[in-house]
Design a protein around this nucleic acid. Structure first.
Lengths: 112, 112
DNA sequence: GTGTAATTGTACAATAATGCAAATACAGTA
DNA sequence: TACTGTATTTGCATTATTGTACAATTACAC
């Protein structure tokens, strides 16, 4: 199923853009307010060039948008639905799952 | 903010587990029914060892669980809420965003 | 034991993250 | 206009992480 595979590649591309701690911090920050690159750089504590690249990744994925404001560029969250990811993620982190991993309990090697 | 950063690292860890086309196919397939490693291997068309590793990643993230059934191991979706990711992703792929990227329209270089 | 299913060891190729230095964009001012 | 300063992006180089397959190993049923 080659066409199908392509569909999943596209989906993965967007999820990949969210699959990084610095970018998650940026997204959450932008959910509160639009921010400049410099402001976001202070937040995540990385080189400004790195932050600029993170923003490019988010922009290419369609997750953020930007707008020039004189000397600086303001970034804002374009698709706030990505914040919904966090609900599920927190659920998983808190171990709130329907079912248990019985495989871990008996036979699987390398089970956590 | 070091403790805060750690929180985002943990979140990113889970989203990373979803950030791969083969694993997304596996997750969607498991949302329909539990499956063996061999069955999933046919689905994604990769070496079985690779699929086994993909499943390990999903299991470590808490997204799938497994259970031994005689000779084989059955994997199932443990936290179906990850399927909600797809809603938002499809929205982005269809360009259904609140706002536009005005930065693309005028001044930014490398704007898509 | 033999056969089937799944995992792990190893190696390799491809991607991603990062910082430094240089370049570009724009505002203000001489 | 040209010069300066601030904000952002891009060109490189480097390191870290991820995806992959093949071979060997382990688990289990018969």
């Amino acid at each position: 199923m080659p066409a199908d595979k392509d569909r999943f590649e596209k989906r993965a591309e967007i999820i990949k853009a969210m699959a990084n701690a610095a970018r998650l911090m940026i997204v959450e920050e932008l959910s509160r307010n639009e921010k400049t690159v410099t402001a976001l750089t202070e937040l995540v504590n990385l080189d400004i060039s790195t932050v600029s690249r993170h923003l490019l990744i988010l922009r290419h994925a369609g997750i953020v948008a930007c707008e020039r404001n004189g000397n600086q560029i303001l970034y804002r969250l374009r698709t706030p639905c990505v914040l919904n990811f966090f609900d599920c993620v927190e659920k998983i982190l808190n171990g709130e799952s329907n079912t248990t991993d019985t495989c871990s309990d008996n036979s699987c090697r390398e089970c956590n």
